[in-house]
Design a binder for these strands. Structure first.
Length: 419
DNA sequence: AAGCTCTGCAACCGCACCACT
DNA sequence: CAGTGGTGCGGTTGCAGAGCT
């Protein structure tokens, strides 16, 4: 047992097992602030405590935080003292709301590093890891709510606008520059359309609020790149069936992005402007089904028998969470991040067992699969899937996925090949 | 005005790592 | 090599205040 008892953490049962007569509660209490008879304070810091700490650091410098508690009279643990200093009292800290430039920087860094908050914070002057972490989580929550609300708040008239819009009736400026491929639905069945990336900025993503039904429509439709995944069950993979047995080759119809473009996207650059980026093609996605029988066996519980659609959701849930949690830079092995395509076997095993398991078992090992997923956009996929579910549930057909994709320029462009 | 709900953020917790003895 | 102290990190919790009924 450690001398001070201050840094005791976890594994109480193991520790008490070594100490006769000391209960779990007693040992736990020691680490939680009771050292001998001395109770360490917890909770919000007072002005006087801050003053004591600042004076101490001014005189003795930073570090040796446990000594601060001993020498200054502060009834706080070393950990608590260190946290208070680094997150609130440090003179270099920049307080107040995040500037747009800071937000942009954080998005870019998160795309690179994932939830490595301290690493991100080290590149954002004056901001702490905790601050950035809170910022990110808050934004994520807010955006999810916003998307949900935008869907749920649509009334009948707006739904009609939406339908009208989806059939090509909008004059919204954001669509005026798009429709790069004026393909008919029939054409698209065999020739997936290209979508051009607009100028997706993280700021606009999170702050955009539709001011009109048409704008709501744009917002909604732009999030529909994965809608087609839910349109009807496709063929189920048999155990020994290769992907080539039923999957079209998307690369035959859609030109892959250049390495430069791909790397920009994967690594989170937002300077995509008018660069054409292929988005998931209806011809392969709408009819394609992940090998759900294999996936579902992993997630089956009791009598539960997921439908193919549910299996897709499991797959995308896993992908979503992994890309959010680890960042897309970590979604692929480092040396694959710059490539235009990678195989399932290239998915970095460190990103999480669930995703890895799902991906590995969801497709034949020789299937070449490429995911270009921006973490911030992964949430949009998710909401898109949820919205599409609601659409099916309530029987409201906004538009066909093919029409959506052909006529609406996305505000953002999560690109994914599933081949 | 009171009570309730929601939201954002400060603080805490458990774990891991490293240096030192 | 094991034990200990110090520190860092990422996830989670709890609370204050704002907003709503």
């Amino acid at each position: 047992m450690r001398k001070e008892g201050l840094n005791l953490t976890g594994k109480w049962e193991m520790m008490t097992g070594r100490k006769v007569g000391v209960t779990t509660v007693a040992v736990s209490s020691a680490a939680r602030g009771i050292v001998g008879q001395q109770m360490l304070k917890k909770g919000p810091w007072t002005v006087s405590e801050d003053a004591i700490l600042m004076d101490y650091v001014k005189m003795h410098g930073e570090g040796k935080w446990n000594l601060v508690q001993k020498n200054s009279g502060l009834q706080r643990s070393g950990k608590s003292i260190r946290l208070r200093w680094l997150n609130h009292l440090h003179p270099d800290l920049r307080k107040g709301p995040f500037a747009p430039e800071e937000e942009m920087l954080i998005f870019q860094l998160h795309a690179l590093h994932g939830n490595k908050w301290s690493r991100i914070a080290s590149q954002v002057p004056g901001r702490t890891d905790n601050e950035i972490k809170n910022f990110w989580n808050t934004k994520k929550k807010r955006e999810k709510r916003a998307v949900k609300n935008r869907f749920c708040s649509l009334d009948f008239q707006q739904l009609m606008e939406l339908r009208k819009f989806s059939q090509g009736g909008s004059s919204d400026s954001r669509t005026a520059t798009s429709t790069p491929v004026p393909a008919t639905p029939t054409q698209m069945e065999g020739n997936p359309p290209l979508l051009y990336a607009a100028e997706p900025t993280p700021i606009s993503l999170f702050n955009s609020a539709p001011s009109s039904p048409a704008e709501s429509a744009v917002g909604l439709l732009s999030q529909n790149s994965f809608r087609s995944l839910l349109k009807g069950p496709g063929p189920i993979l048999q155990e020994n069936m290769g992907a080539e047995d039923f999957l079209p080759d998307p690369l035959a119809a859609v030109s892959a992005p250049t390495p430069a473009v791909a790397s920009q996207y994967v690594l989170g650059s937002f300077e995509l402007s008018t660069t054409p980026l292929p988005i998931i093609s209806p011809s392969c996605s709408a009819e394609m089904e992940l090998p759900s029988s294999q996936v579902s066996s992993e997630f089956d519980e009791g009598e539960h028998n997921p439908t193919p659609m549910q299996d897709n959701n499991v797959f995308f849930d896993a992908l979503l969470h992994a890309s959010q949690d680890y960042g897309v830079g970590k979604l692929l092995k480092d040396d694959q991040a710059m490539e235009t395509s990678c195989k399932l076997s290239d998915i970095d095993s460190s990103i999480g067992t669930q995703l890895n398991k799902v991906i590995t078992e969801a497709a034949p090992p020789d299937t070449s699969t490429l995911f270009y997923v921006m973490p911030a956009y992964a949430a949009e996929w998710y909401n898109d899937i949820r919205m599409a579910q609601a659409e099916l549930e309530f029987g409201v057909g906004f538009c066909s996925s093919a029409t959506c994709i052909s006529s609406v320029e996305p505000l953002f462009a999560p690109a994914a090949y599933l081949s």
